[in-house]
């Protein structure tokens, strides 16, 4: 059981590294991405500074124009990323179904709590019995990936900067929250 857990952690580290590696090959190293990213970061920082100092009425038009530009750039950035996201999505679905069949019906860990019924679908997936503290492969894998992936991105400096995150919402995100 302990061996299974360690294996799952190792698998999630490997897949996270693989994912980042693939994204690096497909996206991060391309000139277009680098240029766009630098641009977005610069603009986000600038906008944030302007917001702090309080853009007065005369500057408002200029401010809005910059905001618009940032949004366009952010959208372009998401499009560039999307290509690799699809490739990775396909690769990982295949990988996951493979691991799923390896760990099929196996209790990999014992949960120290009973998950709420909504989560039991995942935590008790493909497991027999009524003991809901049994943990399936997929639950532990998801948890591992959630922590490992972000930490690896952060360590390698690939995570998007905070100001860019805050200002631009990207393609899928919610609209940017400007001012409260």
């Amino acid at each position: 059981m302990f061996g299974d857990c360690v294996l799952i952690v190792a698998i999630s580290i490997c897949t996270a590294l693989l994912g980042e590696g693939l994204t690096w090959v497909l996206v991060y190293r391309t000139e277009k991405y680098k240029k766009l990213k630098a641009e977005v970061e610069k603009q986000s920082k600038k906008l944030e500074k302007q917001k702090e100092t309080g853009a007065d009425v005369a500057n408002k038009k200029k401010y809005e124009r910059q905001e618009e530009k940032l949004k366009t750039n952010n959208r372009d950035l998401s499009f560039v990323k999307m290509k690799s996201m699809f490739a990775i999505g396909f690769a990982f679905t295949a990988l996951l179904s493979m691991f799923n069949s390896i760990f099929d019906g196996r209790v990999v860990a014992k949960l120290p709590f009973t998950p709420i019924s909504l989560l039991q679908n995942i935590s008790h997936r493909n497991l027999g019995g009524e003991d809901y503290t049994d943990c399936s492969f997929i639950f532990l894998y998801i948890l591992c990936t959630m922590s490992v992936r972000q930490n690896i991105q952060k360590l390698l400096g690939l995570a998007p900067s905070r100001s860019a995150n805050k200002q631009g919402s990207g393609f899928f995100g919610a609209p940017a929250q400007m001012g409260k």
Partner: peptide, 12 residues
């Protein structure tokens, strides 16, 4: 999530 992973693995 790091906390959960550490907790679950060690507990089990």
């Amino acid at each position: 999530s790091s906390f959960m992973v550490a907790w679950i693995i060690l507990y089990s």
